[in-house]
Amino acid sequence: MLEIKNLHVEVEGKKILNGLNLTVNPGEVAAIMGPNGSGKSTLSYVIAGKDDYDVTDGEILIDGENILDKDPEERAAAGIFLAFQYPVEIPGVATMTFLKASLNAQRRARGESDMSTPDFMRVVREAAAKLEVDPDMLKRPLNVGFSGGEKKRMEILQMALLSPRYGILDETDSGLDIDALRIVAGGVNALRAENRGFLVITHYQRLLDYIKPDVVHIMSRGQIVKTGSADLALELEKNGYRDYVADAA
């Protein structure tokens, strides 16, 4: 279980998360919807361990263990995966080299041995084929010159390779055309499993047509202001965030 309890986060003295509470159960897809600037990306970065943020109160627990003191790499090894809203370009590092380094780093952290190169090549090629990622792209520097859609597919490919326990998808749908959206959603759905939870952050109902959430949370001004079923997303699509933003004010 991924639990976020009373999380308070500031950046440069500015409060961004104000006592946020949220639980993602294994096997569950939880959606977070909320207006721009409500703190969704901040939440995802804080879970992944980015250190630009001051956590002034609260806890983030995986199966009861607080991960706030852990480094990002330790959290990754513990099963956290963040699909970035803006995947970072890394010139000079071939995508393949990066994938191998991350997969083996996580294996080592779990006390497993490195995956052999032939095995690695096989799993990467299979994952790439499923996401319709051109194998030639894997030779190119990571994310450099990739289109928006290619970057997002690459994020999902990484998630597939690393098989995390909790996948956090920060606006993975933004900048995708309908075909890319279908491929990405298909990739996520293929990873749905009893022991794996997802936190799907999105602006639009559209993505949730493809990835059916079990629960929808509405976030505003750094808090979860409403929780409901998948229907809540449909209601938002009609009425917008007005009601919830006003409530929080």
Binding site: A48, G49, P91, G92, T97, F98, S102, A109, Q158
Partner: peptide, 20 residues
């Protein structure tokens, strides 16, 4: 941060960037 969020330890992440 991107590299570390994928599980690559800090020094190794630095090494990847520095080699590049």
């Amino acid at each position: 941060f991107y590299l570390r969020a994928r599980g690559i330890p800090e020094k190794e992440a630095q090494a990847l960037l520095l080699e590049a």
